[in-house]
Design a protein around this nucleic acid. Structure first.
Length: 567
RNA sequence: UGGGGCGUCGCCAAGUUGGCAAGGCACAGGAUUUUGGUUCCUGCAUUCGGAGGUUCGAGUCCUCCCGCCUCAGCCA
């Protein structure tokens, strides 16, 4: 394999086309071998896992090449942006595990400089003030197949343009009255080059510059300047900006002495069984299909944090999916796999019965309580152990008992011996049903010689069950989360009405009466556990209290029995 | 017969100057196991959207064709 590249870019991470470009740049001494990237969110919404891909890419590249990565807010549109989003984005990027040190920047910090640059273009005869209104500009722009035509304003003198632009800046004109446009080519096959708008008039208060500016720069004009000013070497963005690259380059090439970063585009992330567009996510929140931006089913970083997904698992996921230019849809199972891998290593094991049925161990002394040793994590010898109380009456999982069982079922069945994890071997001797045929009570006998769950005589038991002592059990609520949508790609709803038709009615199942071992009452919100044999869960960041403990299922265990059973 | 991209296993994805198809997820077997979890083995593209061509040799070069994504905000 290409061990050379891997050694060079470190960490044994797979190569990708961006690293190849950077390797080449370094070989050629471009940018003096510097690598400087940036993550440039607009503070107008919450970050989601798609942004995480970009964050991991930009900060990861900087780390791999001993470079730097900035966090920069692209706040050029005051009517959409709010400080609240700045805060949440900062929180999310930190949570993901990245550090921009003192390099937190705002596009709005460069407004003065951008204005000067605009004047420079006007002076070069490369920009002009437009009188046409928005609708007229659209008409003049032409269509995909037909060239546009030049605006009457295009012929204005430099002096007049300078004057008008100054007056735009001074607030003399109402919103929409004029714009500043670059003078490029109205017949270009690339629509972005048909005299794109650089500045629009917006008498709006900005979250940082307040009322200082009545004009605001457009993305295409502003973004390259931001990159240039910060000395960015590789400006990484998503595929839809590919068509903007010629414009990005045109602006920078026409400004004297401006540092000129290289724009590189990659394919944005699509994840199966969810949607990623801000508009659709917003709709789910507003129409109450989810409880908020941090609903554990949301693909937002806030939602994933509340779900209990470790940031390290998201970083691992972003490494595994790679970076390329082909549109793709990553299987949610890939993320689940990363989550399980992390949690298997790190989550303390604990016993919780989700759907309890009572078991009475008829030959166990009434009133007796034993404290049994239970290891906290077989994957981590430093995790230690805890004591779990055992008594005559316990709860087990309803689905772990079958009156008549198929051959491959090796849980509790009348007459068969099974092991209670960390406790004893027990054998079912009897059971009680109510008039609906539902099991209400199971009777067992235990073997006192098997304390701890071992037998000296080499006797084999195939099944091991988790349990909770009835008198010591803590009542907890458990929320089982599943895919938000039933369809792999809810976005291709073109044939039918709308993506919300594919919402999964079982994406949240609340179990209000679960039985947990006593220690769980003391958990800190956000703690994650493996509920033995059931999956990984975390105490809910918002709703968990010692009085009413609430746990979220992060992801279920892999379950080969379920697969077998369904066949 | 507008422009710009992309097409390698069910899903991601590597494949640097042509040298004879990495890896992960998923799936299927088996071993180990006080979690039907973990771990560990094993299997899983004679083939790279298709058809031609160049070459001793092509996923990599050439030609044509097919399919998908994307662009007409004073959004980013």
């Amino acid at each position: 394999m290409n061990t050379e590249i891997q050694d060079k870019t470190g960490a044994g991470k797979p190569s990708n086309f961006i690293k190849n470009i950077i390797d080449e740049d370094i070989k050629n001494g471009k940018n003096d071998g510097r690598v400087h990237t940036r993550f440039p969110p607009e503070p107008n919404g919450y970050l989601h896992i798609g942004h995480a891909k970009s964050i991991c890419l930009n900060f990861g590249l900087a780390a791999d090449y001993n470079g730097l990565a900035n966090l920069r807010f692209d706040d050029t549109n005051p009517v959409k942006e709010e400080d609240e989003y700045v805060k949440s984005i900062i929180e999310d990027v930190k949570w993901l595990g990245f550090d921009w040190q003192d390099r937190l920047y705002f596009a709005s910090d460069y407004f003065d400089k951008m204005y000067e640059y605009a004047v420079e273009l006007i002076n070069k005869g490369l920009a002009y003030v437009e009188d046409l209104n928005a609708e007229e500009i659209r008409e003049y722009r032409g269509s995909l197949k037909n060239p546009g035509k030049e605006s009457p304003s295009r012929g204005r003198s430099i002096a007049e343009n300078l004057d008008l632009f100054k007056r735009m800046r001074d607030g003399e004109f109402p919103d929409g009255a004029k714009v500043l446009r670059a003078k490029i080519d109205m017949a270009s096959p690339n629509m972005n080059m048909r005299d794109p708008v650089m500045y629009r008039i917006l008498h709006a208060s900005h979250h940082r510059t307040s009322d200082k500016w009545p004009i605001y720069p457009m993305y295409d004009w502003a973004h390259g300047l931001e990159d240039s000013i910060e000395g960015i070497t590789h400006s990484i963005c998503t595929l839809e900006f590919e068509d903007h690259r010629p414009l990005y380059n045109w602006f920078l090439a026409n400004l004297d002495g401006a540092h000129h970063p290289q724009q590189i585009e990659f394919a944005r992330l699509n994840l199966s069984y969810t949607v990623m567009s801000k508009r659709k996510l917003l709709q789910l929140v507003i129409e109450r299909f989810v409880s908020g931006w941090d609903d554990p089913r949301m693909p937002t970083l806030a939602g994933m944090r509340r779900r209990g997904i470790p940031p390290a698992a998201i970083r691992d996921f972003c490494d595994r999916i790679g970076v390329a230019k082909a549109d793709s849809m990553v299987d949610r199972a890939m993320l689940d796999s990363c989550v399980r891998e992390d949690l298997n290593k790190n989550a303390r094991r604990v016993m919780v019965v989700l759907d309890p049925v009572k078991v009475i161990i008829t030959n166990y002394p009434e009133g007796k309580v034993e404290n049994l040793t239970a290891e906290n994590n077989p994957e981590d010898e430093n995790a230690g152990s805890r004591m779990v109380p055992f008594s005559r009456e316990i709860f087990i999982e309803r689905e772990d008992f079958l009156e008549e069982a198929p051959k491959k079922f090796f849980r509790m069945v009348p007459g068969r011996e099974v092991r209670l994890k960390h406790a004893y071997y027990v054998k079912c001797t009897d059971f009680v049903k109510d008039k609906n045929g539902e099991i209400t009570e199971i009777h067992c006998e235990y073997d006192p010689a098997t304390k701890g769950g071992w037998s000296d005589d080499g006797r084999k038991v195939k099944g091991t069950l988790h349990w909770v002592s009835a008198q010591h059990a803590v009542d907890v609520e458990v929320r089982l989360y599943d895919h938000l949508f039933t369809k792999e790609n809810p976005d291709d709803a073109r044939d039918t009405a709308d993506f919300k038709e594919y919402l999964n009615p079982e994406s949240l199942i609340t179990l209000p009466n679960c039985k947990a071992e006593p220690g769980l009452r003391e958990s800190t919100p956000g703690d994650s556990f493996q509920f033995l044999r059931k999956g990984y869960f975390c105490s809910d960041l918002k709703d968990f209290t010692a009085e009413k403990p609430v746990f979220n299922r992060i992801v279920a265990m892999r379950d080969t029995w379920k697969k077998l059973d369904q066949k």
